[in-house]
């Protein structure tokens, strides 16, 4: 199959949906001639015109509100927040409006839009351009939260998110944009709320999200050389969460490690651990369920400090080894 990058997969999903559905339009900062801060919308204004690729002033609450109002009245907007950090400026609209409107109005309205945003560290962008805030949104009923880890998933999940009748927070990762992978040229959908078993193994279950899926895969290669077989599960959609494959996997392996970039305290890992220990998998556990996550600090600027602020391949290898060998 043809290989394209993660950012190209996103652009292709946007272009194909826009060509198919006249109610889909894009709105965000510098998404027109500039093509988006990370190039996700490059060329789309030339293809679809400025009425459907709308450059906005620096107004994140306005962007979110524009998505909500248009969605309420028959459109399917796809907004872009330039860096996930800036979504803090949209929080009222997303949490108190978008997430609540349907329920508050007795199930008689729908708000179908997607808000894309790149999160994560690793680019030297420091504390205000490197956040991983996905779990804030996971905590809000009425929102869906999607976090693709491959080009294939990015395209299929984005198309499904645009077709979904609910507000979807679509979290991309800056370090993944240039990662290449096989992606079909035609349109396809990956249903929201379906975890993916990325790699099978019998000794340890690793649940990882976003860029940590790639790092877990590299760690698994190293561990395989030591005779440790790791199973990797990527939830892909954090809300709704498909925990069935996770629980099934832990029953098989008896050990679980959750890996994410966001700060550990209050992070998504806590939810995964809880799902495991609340389930029948508890009786199968041979070791504590552990989390490997970002340190309890803002992301530092210095290259070495930034590297050590979030889990790396060697940290995953070490943690996995401890769990399998029972030394922790």
């Amino acid at each position: 199959m043809r290989e394209i990058t993660y950012v190209e997969a996103i652009r292709e999903a946007l272009a194909q949906k826009m060509a198919e559905d006249p109610t889909v339009f894009l709105i965000g900062e510098d998404i027109g001639i500039y093509g988006g801060a990370f190039g996700a919308t490059a060329g789309l204004i030339e293809q679809f015109g400025e009425e459907r690729v709308i450059d906005t002033p620096i107004s994140e609450a306005g962007i979110a509100g524009a998505c909500i109002g248009a969605a309420l009245t028959g459109m399917r907007p796809v907004g872009e927040i330039q860096f996930m950090d800036f979504v803090t400026l949209s929080m009222e609209q997303l949490v108190l409006q978008a997430a609540k409107i349907r329920f508050m109005f007795g199930g008689k309205a729908k708000v179908p839009f997607v808000l894309r945003m790149p999160g994560g560290s690793g680019t030297g962008a420091a504390a205000q351009h490197s956040e991983s805030l996905e779990n804030w949104f996971v905590h809000v009923p009425g929102l869906k939260v999607v976090m693709p880890s491959t080009p294939y998933d990015a395209k299929g999940l984005l198309i499904a998110a645009i077709e979904d009748d609910n507000p979807v927070i679509f979290v991309e990762h800056k370090l993944l944009y240039k990662v290449k992978g096989p992606v079909p040229e035609e349109m396809y959908r990956i249903p929201l709320g379906q975890s993916h078993i990325v790699r099978e193994g019998k000794d340890l279950t690793i649940v990882a999200t976003s860029v940590m899926v790639q790092r877990a895969l590299q760690a698994a290669e190293q561990l395989q050389a030591e005779g440790i077989e790791v199973e990797i599960i990527d939830p892909r959609t954090l809300r709704p969460l498909d925990d069935v494959p996770i629980i099934r996997s832990v029953k098989k392996t008896g050990r679980a490690l959750v890996v994410h970039e966001a700060v550990k305290m209050g992070g998504f890992g806590g939810e995964i651990v809880a799902r495991i220990v609340e389930s029948e998998a508890f009786d199968y556990l041979e070791a504590p369920v552990r989390r490997l996550a970002g340190l309890d600090i803002p992301i530092p600027y210095n290259r070495t400090l930034e590297y050590h602020a979030v889990p790396q391949v060697e940290n995953i290898v070490e943690e996995a080894r401890k769990l399998v060998k029972g030394v922790y």
Binding site: I27, A64, G65, I68, G69, A70, T73, Q97
Partner: peptide, 21 residues
Amino acid sequence: NGIVGGGIPISVGVGLSIKMR
């Protein structure tokens, strides 16, 4: 709207939608 000013950003989307439709 229970949030003071909460509907004002939404009006931007409604206006855009009317224009596009």
